[in-house]
């Protein structure tokens, strides 16, 4: 187990290095200079480049990034908040916290509501409850986040005025409602569908027949025997969910005017603030990678057949 985790952490670090390299190459391929404005002269740009080490060869620049990241230094912003350390921007201005909170609540909602809904649908297969849930979840995975978010905004904030149009820094519960729902709805529906399918799959397994033949109560057959087995594919899906929620946060944060990391990332790309792009990419990627690791360990807890030894893979 420990061996496996160590191996996974090494792979995670390697992945992050690759992501850093790719990001670095990509952002340097963006034509023009971050310091190019209407007023800037070539001399000014050259001076700015020298100041931030952008005149050095690419591999030196990349190596400098990696060195400073290993020391925990994420560099300083070039443009958007010139001179401010990126770590301050990300972690101490509430951006990371906002995005993380939003993402975790959305994840929680998707799991806490999605799994029971899937079970209910599977348990009532063929009835109107199942039919209703199937329609909702099938439509749910076809509505793009931005359409849902905007429609919620128009309906509940603009027309009905129950909820604030600007969620801002998420200080009240009302501010959370729409961003969390729009962020998690797709995944909620997907998790419910997945649970239903794998539940029905599990119900048709031989061991369910065995349990029934033993005289186990139907509720217990579902909750004890079928559920745990049907959770395995759902857990697998949670890794992509985390990545997807980060993606969705770009849209949701801009729709509801939340100054989170997602929104900031899009701005930093458009502004070519290299250190900010790099740091946001690494932080968000790390989040996804950590999530994947957690998922794999959760596997072991649910399914004893999976042995997490370092020999594996």
């Amino acid at each position: 187990m420990t061996g496996y985790i160590i191996k996974r952490i090494i792979v995670a670090i390697l992945t992050l290095l690759v992501i850093m390299t790719v990001t670095f190459l990509l952002m340097n391929a963006i034509p023009g200079s971050p310091f190019l404005t209407e007023k800037s002269t070539p001399e000014m740009i050259a001076r700015a480049n020298a100041k931030y080490g952008l005149d050095k060869p690419l591999y030196v620049q990349l190596w400098n990034y990696i060195k400073s990241y290993l020391k925990g230094d994420l560099g300083t912003s070039l443009k958007m908040q010139e001179g401010t350390p990126v770590s301050t921007i990300i972690f101490h201005q509430g951006k990371f916290e906002l995005s993380l909170k939003l993402g975790l609540y959305a994840l929680l909602l998707a799991v806490v509501l999605g799994i029971p809904l899937g079970c209910i649908a599977a348990y009532n297969r063929g009835t109107w409850i199942d039919g209703f849930l199937r329609v909702v979840t099938t439509v749910g995975v076809a509505i793009p986040t931005f359409v849902l978010a905007t429609l919620l905004l128009v309906t509940f904030a603009v027309k009905l005025q129950w909820l604030p149009t600007v969620s801002g820094s998420l200080t009240t519960w009302k501010a959370y409602v729409m961003p969390v729902i729009s962020l998690s709805f797709y995944y909620l529906c997907y998790v419910a569908k997945l649970t239903r399918t794998s539940m029905l799959d599990a119900i048709n397994q031989d061991y369910i027949r065995t349990a029934r033949a033993k005289g186990v109560k139907t509720r217990s057959v579902i909750l004890k025997h079928a559920l745990r087995n049907s959770l395995i594919p759902v857990i697998t899906y949670l890794g992509p969910v985390m990545a997807g929620i980060i993606t969705g946060s770009f849209v949701v944060e801009s729709t509801f005017s939340i100054p989170g990391l997602g929104k900031y990332f899009v701005q930093s790309v458009l502004n070519r603030d290299y250190p900010v792009i790099m740091a946001t990419t690494v932080v968000l990627s790390a989040l996804v990678i950590i999530m994947n690791l957690v998922v794999d360990i959760a596997y072991k807890i649910v399914d004893p057949r999976i042995t997490l030894t370092s020999k594996e893979a």
């Binding site: 397994q205 065995t210 025997h225 004893p304 057949r305």
Partner: peptide
């Protein structure tokens, strides 16, 4: 008791 003992026992218990 059933035909296939490989699948008749719940793998997670």
């Amino acid at each position: 008791i059933f035909q296939n003992p490989m699948t008749c026992l719940n793998p997670v218990y």
